[in-house]
Structures are given as C-alpha cells and as structure tokens.
C-alpha cells in the first residue's frame, strides 16, 4: 500500500566531522510515496545506504510533529523547504515533483558548527537563554496564579513570541546569520508580561551580549528570518528588542 512511484535525485552535504571538509554526494532514489514526510524519505534513503554498506546520512530529528525544533534541513535553498510555516518533519513529498533534484544542506553559520553531515551544534542558543531568558523565581516562591491579572492581549502576544521552537531556521535563512529573531522572541515574551519586569533591562543587555559573543551576525532587517520561521515569529519582536536594548543601555544604572 505504501509503494510510491516518485523518483528523485538528491544532492546531500556529507561531512565526516567538524574538522573535515565536506562535499555534496548525489543519490538517486525510487519508489517514493507522495504521502511520505521529507524525513521518512531520508529514512528510506538511509535504509538503502545501509543495504549498500554505506554509512547513512546523519540528520537531526526527533518529535516529527513540528514542535521540538530538532529537525534542521536546508532544502533547495530554503530552511525547512518550500512551504511556509512548516518544519522539515511536516513537509511531505507531495510538495515535490517526480524527477526533481533536491539539494539538502546543513544550517550554515559560524555559530552553528557542523557536527556531522546535516547535524549542526546549536548549543549557542542555550547559552543565550542562560544569559537572561528566564524569570528568576525559585521553586516555591510563587504567589497564587490569579493574584496577578494579565490583559488577554498581552498574554496572547507573549504566547505568539513564546511559540519559538528554537530550531535555528532564522539564523540559517539570514544572510548575516543573525540570531535576532530567536533572541528577540524570548526578550519580547518576558517583557510583555508583568512577571518579566524585574529583570527587564538586564535581560536585554545580557542576552544581546551573549548573542554577539557567540559569533552571530548583526541584523540588517532583511526579513528572511520571519519569512522562513516555521512558527511565523514576527519581525515586530526584533524592533521590540532594539527598543528594549537601547532603552536599557541608556537608562539602566549599569555603568
């Protein structure tokens, strides 16, 4: 019931590890069903490679339902492929034509070094969060949840920013490899909510400093990040981060 009839040519980036040079390998693949997800197509390819005694292609993936942010393929020149608002794992082969050549690359950014093949190291994102992407509240210190009403609009807007899955498509899409969309989404979420006010200034300063020290580029407002974001995080967040950062730098008591 599954046998499909699509034939594809895949040009996939292969790289042994972070130190070695990489190159493209070309593979042809038959019997692909349009109902397969893009990653399932890669499973088929890997099974084929194993049967030919070749090492399968390493790629990051986990939940396969578009929420964990692990999958990270740069497909035909676009992070997560041709669809808008969709992660690689939710992309299906019916978005391609029989006979297509598909070029698959890892995210490319100095701050995302390649681990192997299509797998990159995104721990820089974790370090940005560690620098300030939290509310400092120890367990057990919270007051009753309803003692602090939050306007629905603020809560909804904060939620939209909090929807970021940290996949790094924004960095991959950006010609400057800037992490502004990622950083700004977290800064926005917490600056929109009353809980985030106490650390509002220091948060923006520290997160931007960490972002810069990781080697991400500067935002030049091209908008590619938001256009490619699988969760469609808005550019408004970046403007808000600029405001938060500059406002904090000018007014905070840190000399």
């Amino acid at each position: 019931m599954s046998a499909g009839n699509m034939s594809l040519t895949l040009k996939v980036w292969r790289q042994k590890n972070g130190k070695s040079e990489g190159n493209f390998e070309t593979y042809s693949l038959d019997g692909i069903s349009p109902d397969m997800s893009f990653l399932e197509m890669f499973d088929v390819l890997n099974e084929k490679l194993v049967s030919e005694n070749k090492e399968p292609i390493a790629f990051d993936h986990d939940c396969r339902e578009g929420i964990c942010g692990t999958c990270s393929m740069y497909i035909n020149g676009r992070p997560h492929g041709p669809l808008k608002g969709v992660t690689t794992c939710q992309l299906h082969m019916r978005s391609f034509q029989d006979g297509d050549t598909i070029v698959v690359e890892p995210w490319r950014a100095a701050a995302f070094p390649v681990v192997k093949d299509l797998v990159v190291d995104r721990t820089s994102f974790d370090r940005i969060i560690s620098a300030g992407g939290f509310v400092s509240i120890n367990t057990g210190n919270a007051r009753d949840a309803n003692s602090l009403p939050i306007p629905k609009e603020s809560a909804d807007e904060a939620f939209m920013s909090a929807a970021c899955i940290g996949c790094g498509a924004c960095v991959a899409a950006c010609k400057n490899s800037s992490a502004m969309l990622f950083t700004s989404a977290k800064v926005s979420q917490l600056s929109l909510l009353p809980q985030g006010q106490a650390e509002r200034k220091i948060r923006a300063e520290k997160m931007v400093a960490q972002m810069d020290s990781e080697g991400f580029g500067a935002c030049t407002n091209t908008g590619a990040c938001s256009a490619e974001c699988p969760k469609e995080i808005s550019l408004d967040n970046i403007a808000r981060l600029n405001r938060e950062y500059l406002g904090s730098k000018i007014t905070s008591s840190l000399v």
């Binding site: 939290f134 509310v135 509240i137 367990t139 057990g140 210190n141 919270a142 007051r143 009753d144 949840a145 309803n146 602090l148 009403p149 939050i150 306007p151 629905k152 809560a155 909804d156 904060a158 939620f159 909090a162 979420q189 917490l190 909510l193 809980q195 985030g196």
Partner: peptide, 20 residues
C-alpha cells in the same frame, strides 16, 4: 502550586478578557 510556579516563570497560559 504547579500552576502558580509556571505563571510566575512567564508561561503564557490562556486567559479570559478580565486577565484571569
């Protein structure tokens, strides 16, 4: 207490128009 803790962390739970 879990709800209290999560709200204090900035988890954006759904709210009514009154803010609760």
């Amino acid at each position: 207490s879990i709800i209290d803790q999560c709200v204090a962390q900035g988890v954006p739970f759904a709210r009514e128009y009154g803010g609760l």
